[in-house]
Amino acid sequence: MRSSPAAGGPDVGRRLTRRPGIGAFAIFFGPLIAFYAVFYFFSVGFLIRTSFQKVSLSFRDATNVGLENYRLLIDDPRFIDAVRNNLVFAGVAIVAAMTIGFFISVALWSGVRGRALLYAVFLLPTLMPIALIAAVFRTMLESRFGSINEFLRGVGLDALAQRWLIDPDLAYGVIMVMFVYLIGLPILYYTSNLSIINTSALESAVLDGANPLRLMSQILFPIMRNTHKTVTLSTVLMSFRAFDIVFFSTGGGPAGRTEITGTYVYNYTTSGIKVGFGSAAAVLVLLVSLIVSAVQLRIYRSAGAQR
């Protein structure tokens, strides 16, 4: 809670001016409320309604099917796999963020030459259109003309040239690699928090002759507790929005092996026919993202209160 001034005295006038009249309220919050009314409240209501219907993307001739869509959804092994893949990829991304990402951030912070350039190398891919990055990965890994295989053949390692995107297990691995590759935001969060930590414990440990890896794991890692939380939650949320990563590299294939919730919902939505079914999946994904957001807000607020 924000501090409120004590009643009486000179504060009275100030409190009065801070209470907006109807006009001021409408000017400052009207646009926001209008936006939310249409794009969130109506949207979510509409989505929930279509999730109980059998309907096409023309939205005509909808028939009510009750909970049928949800029942079908929970019975669809592909949906369950999509949710599981989503969590697996999120898990991989979190582990990578807290190890590789943390290491990179600390190494950058500890002072190397060309720090700004190196930082940009790790950060920039995350800030590009992800569709583009994923498309580059795909052409890079194409079995016939992809540069990875051409390179391997060029140095006589033909046996290692694989059908990266066609073999289901390799394709799964490729998606994982891409989740690790897009590590920019965790690095950004760690970097910005490293710049404000108190380093006195670190300095005395350096003077005692501790090696850099020990300093990282035993001193710096524990101090960054709150950043780990931010990184974890933002990575989970990112994984639900990682549609482009999968869509542009494997397209969810082969045979649904790398499907995530994003591609699953997208395919049903844009197929144009099973829109009600797709909406049911969307409702569940939306629900999960709102819950994770609520958790994140709690943590964010308690961290803010400590500051």
Partner: peptide, 27 residues
């Protein structure tokens, strides 16, 4: 501004922070 329900309204505003685009394509 100070008004009743402000923090609740703020909370409702922020809870949509991470809505995945794929989930609202239909509406």
């Amino acid at each position: 501004f100070e008004f009743r329900g402000k923090e609740l309204m703020y909370y409702v505003t922020l809870v949509f922070l991470a809505v995945p685009a794929t989930s609202v394509l239909v509406p």
